[in-house]
Structures are given as structure tokens and as C-alpha cells.
Design a protein around this nucleic acid. Structure first.
Lengths: 337, 337
DNA sequence: CATAACTTTTGGATCGTTCCAATTCCAGCA
DNA sequence: TGCTGGAATTGGAACGATCCAAAAGTTATG
């Protein structure tokens, strides 16, 4: 196979210098239109493909953004990743998506690989685990890093953090459940001790405290499977509980499936509200009420924009919270028996 | 901000030449262990990070694989993408994942961008649309390209294609539904005219033909929403149909939700089998029978391996089909009223 | 018509690595 | 001691683009 043509070949063909070709490639407006056309014609004729590695070597800025997600299989994160990719594509950035699968070690490797590939910024929803040295190392590179949706650690905030205003969302949902007639609202799902669990519980806790209601929480993995299991546990151990605020929609869907299995379908007698409002929430039966985080809007308007600023050297606020809203559907609206 | 250290800085610090540092970086075994150690120590001390752009410029091979997916939001593809990424990571490749969102134009851009970034191979599940010129262009670059899960076009097979043996899977599922007592099995979902729809219908059609049963098919988008809509249509227009083979699990889940909404829960009186066996199938209520495509196994054992061969210059068979198996669960096992 | 002012084009240096041929090192042997 | 040959190390050229200062070309001005 013959070697790929370079700008020198293009230049020779078009009868100009390599510098001119370079200017055309960069879309400089100081080349004469006719010259530009000639160069473009030459490129097409010899099948020139731009060599970004060479360009990057000289010019540092790459237009490549790394995106490291802790669990890309979770639809919530998938939605975020794809939306962010599109938003960034519109601004001319290419995006590298990687899935750390909650593995801190793999995450460190992925981050390293991305830096090697010369990303000009990094968006990360971190995996849990002792990765604080990864972060220190990252900080030392001076790369713009935006932490999203999950905070590595309560105290540290080396990097700006963008997420949703979960606390007021959970307060809103809890109040709604009480208004619908619930006497006792359990919190289901979320691993204990994690920042995000604390956030999503905090509003619930506040409202319950204000109303003088006992706090009942079942913690566990944020999966459907745990939701089903929690349903059984609720029915067996807490017969008085007549509503649940779930850590996320997956748990809520599992919980509803568990109640359905026990022939006690959610809707009348038991109310459920989830978190995230994933697509499926509107398509389950009964339809699931959920605290909606407009994740694609967040990706587009918050994350992409913050990142853009950061790449341009601005320093955004250390913490940014997007508002959430409660979507009430059948799972929290039926009559209370 | 000071400039990033290079191998020259490392060399100076370690008291060796840049060439030696380069050898260490490449893991050459012809450097003395003590020298290697000294170099590694120096790298750690000054916080050296490898500049892959520079390396690529000189050495061509990059160890970067591009993965273009038509719909990354679909859990089936998400699973494939993440599994492939991990399998490739184990072989030392970095993976760039991109989502074309069924947009042929965007797909062309993404492919172009990946080539520019110097991927050494491309895995693509193509978007539909007039992108055949994209493919021609790709073919001209001589890059190893593996087409997966979806074929661009019935006739063309410029690139090797790997997918599942859908035809025998749908035959198996249809036979199973008949054995469970179904009198009439409808096919639900899948856009008409597409290769994959044809494949997933072909086994069903064969079995029905052999049994002399009328073919009833409702085509549409492969989404939950369509499944719900199809449930209404089935109940209204085809009261005799008592089983459905769905194009995929999303449609099947939507269909089941639709029946549930009409207070005719699937399980007794109506049987459903889906396709893909996504994680959710086992967690829905009733649990959904499905033609299981072991997508992560496929990614790991088929796609990753084929790709590896191709990168090494081998030419695999033009078409490869992985076997599928039927998982029967409650949605196709209850009594027929 | 000469000169200034501006636009367009150009050659050489440069980015940080790998490759290659050449050099240095060193143990073993006569 | 001097020589040999393999192992270890080295310096310079190369990769393909961008950047920059300077040259060439063009138009406007007095």
C-alpha cells in the first residue's frame, strides 16, 4: 500500500506552498478564494486525509474531549453521554466515551489513556473507590476537568462539579406523596454513605422530620433486582408503609414489579415515586412518577457550556446545581385504600 | 503554566539518552534492568506523561479502535459497546465510542473524525440512510472495518459482517409458542423492508408456512411506545391472535404494558416472546421470554477476535453468525385460557 | 510614478516521539 | 594484553502538520 498523501503532495498538486494548504485546512480567511478552491480541488483529487496526530503535535489544542462514565449501561448515563457528545459535536469537539464500570483501577487507566491521546478536557462521572490519587495526578496536568453527576468525595472539590438539585427534588416528591394521602413514606435504594444517596435522601428526611414521621430506609444496590427484593421486605416487615420514594427509577420499577408479583399492583394502596425519569418511566405499567432530571438538557446546556468555558480558560463556580421537577403519574396518583 | 516534560527531560534526569527512554517506554527487553529502573524513577519524579500524538506521528500504528453505533441509547447496543471496549482494552487497544443516532450524515462525520484521529480499525453498526459513499470512501482508506449487528445493504458486503443467527432464533421461538398452545402467532415491530426485520421474521414465516397459519405482522418503530400501541391494535383488530413474537424486547415490554393497561396481563391467554434478552427481560412482570443473543459474549469472542485478526492483516469470512438461544420465562409459559 | 499600507503567500523552525545505523561497553578467550 | 562479538546505548533523521517572521503581490495615496 502506498503512503497516505500529505499537505506537501496537496501543495505540489495545487501549485502552492504547504503553508497555504495549512491555512486552507484551518479555514483561514486570508487566502484568496481561487487559491482555496484550487487547494480543495487538489485535496479531493489525491484523496488527502488530514493527519490530526501531526497537527496536535505542533499545536497542542486538539478539540478532543474525554468522557469517562462510571456505568454506561445505566440508561441515565447513556442518555447523558450521548447528549453531551452531540452537544460537543455541534461545537466542533470530538468526544471519546469510555466506561469505567465502577472500577477505580480501570478508570485510572482510561483517564491515563485519554491524557496520552491528548484530550483537551475531561468530563468525568467518577467510579467509587480509592481513586483520589488519580484525581491528584489529573489536577497536576492542569487539564480542564468537569466532574458531573457524582462527587468523588464530600470534602474535596478539586474540580468544578455539576449536578442536579436532588435535595429539593426529594423534598418535593415526599411532600407530594404525603398530599396524596400517604401516612408513611419509605426511602428505598441507594448505597448508604454515598454523597448522592445523602443528597437524594436529604429532602425526604427534612419533610418527614417536619411532619414528625418515622424515617424508614432500605438501602442497597440501585438496581431493579434490589427493588424487587425491597418490595418483599416492605410487605413483610413494614406493613404500615404505604408509599416509597426510590433512589432511582430502576429501583422503583423493580419495586413495582415486586408488588405486581405479589398481586398488590402499585397505584392504589401503595404509591411510588422514582428518581431520574428515564424513558421507561412513562412506559411502565402503572406509569411511574419520577423526579425528572432533564439529563439531555443538562448535558447540552450545563455540562457542554461549562466545559466550553473551562477550555477557554475561564473558571466556573465550584458547584452548579440544575433544577429538577416532579412528574406525577399513575404510580403516585391512585386512591389510597 | 510550565510545559509538559518530554522524554528529553526524563533522559537528562536519568542520565541516559532519549533513545534509551524511548526503549523503556516501548518495553524493549534490551535495556539493562538497572537502567530501566532509573528511567522509570525519573519519569515518576518529574511527572512525565507520554505524548501519543508524537508517537503516532512517527510510528503509524496507534492501538486505537473506533466504534460507531447507530443507537447507543438502546441497551442492546450499549451492552455491546461496553463489552467490546473492555475486551479490546484487555488486548491493549483504546476504544473511541460514538453514537450516530441513526443519522447518516452525522455518521459520515464521525467516521471521518475517527480516521483523522488515526484509528487503526473501525467497528460499525451502521445507521440507515444513503451512506454508501461513506462506505466506499472508507474502503479506499484500506482500514480494517468490521460491520456488526446490522448490514448496510443487502447486496453489498464490502466489509466482513458479524451478527447473530436470527433466522433460526425466530423459528425456535415460533415453534415454542405453538407448542405452548398458541393458535396464531403475530409478528410485532421492526421497520418493514429492513434486512434485520426480514431476518428476524424469516424463521417465524417459515414455521407458520409449514403449519399453514396465517401471517399477521404489525410493523413499526422498535420502541416501547410502538409495543403499547400494537397491543391495542391486536386486541381491537385481531382478537384471534393469542401469541406474539416481537422484533425486540423493547417492543415486547411495551406490548405487555399495553395488555396490562387493558387489564389483560400477558401470561395466561396471551403469550409473548421478545428478542435480545436485555437485562430487563428477566426483571419485568411477567418475566419476558426472549431469544437471547449473548451480546457481551459476541462482543468479546466474536467481534474483538475478528477485529484482532483483521488488524493483523488476516481476511476473515465475509459473514459470521453467532448462535442464539431461546430463554422461556413466564410470558410464554402460562396456561392458555 | 514612487511609496505606503495592506493582503496573500512562503520557507524554515518546531512539536515529541520512533527508527536506524553507528558507537560504546564489557565479558570471555587465546 | 589484545581481540571479538553480542548486549546496551546513542545521536541524528524522520514523521506531517502548525507557527512565525519575512517576502511577494496588490491596491491606494500623494
Amino acid at each position: 500500500m502506498i503512503r497516505r498523501p500529505t499537505i506537501l503532495d496537496v501543495a505540489a498538486r495545487a501549485g502552492v506552498s504547504k503553508s497555504t494548504v495549512s491555512l486552507v485546512l484551518q479555514g483561514s480567511k486570508q487566502v484568496r478564494p481561487e487559491t482555496r478552491e484550487a487547494v480543495e480541488k487538489a485535496m479531493a483529487e489525491i484523496g488527502y486525509v488530514y493527519n490530526r496526530a501531526a497537527a496536535n503535535l505542533r499545536s497542542a489544542s486538539v478539540g478532543l474531549v474525554g468522557l469517562v462514565i462510571n456505568d454506561l449501561r445505566n440508561p441515565f448515563f447513556t442518555e447523558f453521554a450521548t447528549s453531551l457528545q452531540m452537544a460537543l459535536a455541534a461545537e466542533g469537539y470530538a468526544t471519546v466515551i469510555a466506561n469505567s464500570d465502577e472500577d477505580a483501577e480501570l478508570q485510572a487507566k482510561l483517564v491515563g489513556s485519554m491524557i496520552e491521546h491528548g484530550v483537551s478536557a475531561l468530563v468525568i462521572s467518577p467510579a467509587y473507590g480509592a481513586a483520589s490519587d488519580t484525581f491528584d495526578q489529573l489536577a497536576r496536568t492542569g487539564l480542564p476537568v468537569l466532574q458531573v453527576l457524582r462527587k468523588m468525595d464530600e470534602r474535596t472539590s478539586i474540580f468544578p462539579f455539576a449536578s442536579f438539585d436532588y435535595a429539593s427534588g426529594s423534598a418535593k416528591a415526599t411532600r407530594h406523596l404525603l398530599e396524596q394521602g400517604a401516612a408513611s413514606v419509605a426511602f428505598v435504594g441507594g448505597l448508604p454513605g454515598r454523597a448522592i444517596t445523602r443528597e437524594r435522601k436529604s429532602g425526604w428526611r427534612e419533610v418527614l422530620k417536619a411532619e414528625g414521621i418515622e424515617e424508614i430506609a432500605l438501602h442497597g444496590k440501585s438496581s431493579r433486582a434490589f427493588g424487587m427484593q425491597a418490595a418483599d421486605q416492605l410487605m413483610a416487615d413494614y406493613p404500615d408503609v404505604d408509599a416509597a420514594l426510590c433512589f432511582n427509577d430502576l429501583v422503583a420499577l423493580g419495586l413495582m414489579a415486586g408488588f405486581a408479583r405479589a398481586e398488590r399492583p402499585v397505584g392504589s394502596g401503595f404509591h411510588v415515586v422514582g428518581f431520574d425519569d428515564i424513558e421507561e418511566a412513562a412506559q411502565s405499567w402503572p406509569q411511574l412518577s419520577s423526579v425528572a432530571c432533564d439529563i439531555s438538557g443538562f448535558a447540552r446546556d450545563t455540562a457542554a457550556r461549562l466545559l466550553h468555558w473551562m477550555v477557554e480558560g475561564q473558571r466556573p463556580e465550584p458547584e452548579f446545581r440544575s433544577p429538577v421537577r416532579l412528574i406525577s403519574r399513575a404510580s403516585s396518583l391512585g386512591p389510597t385504600e
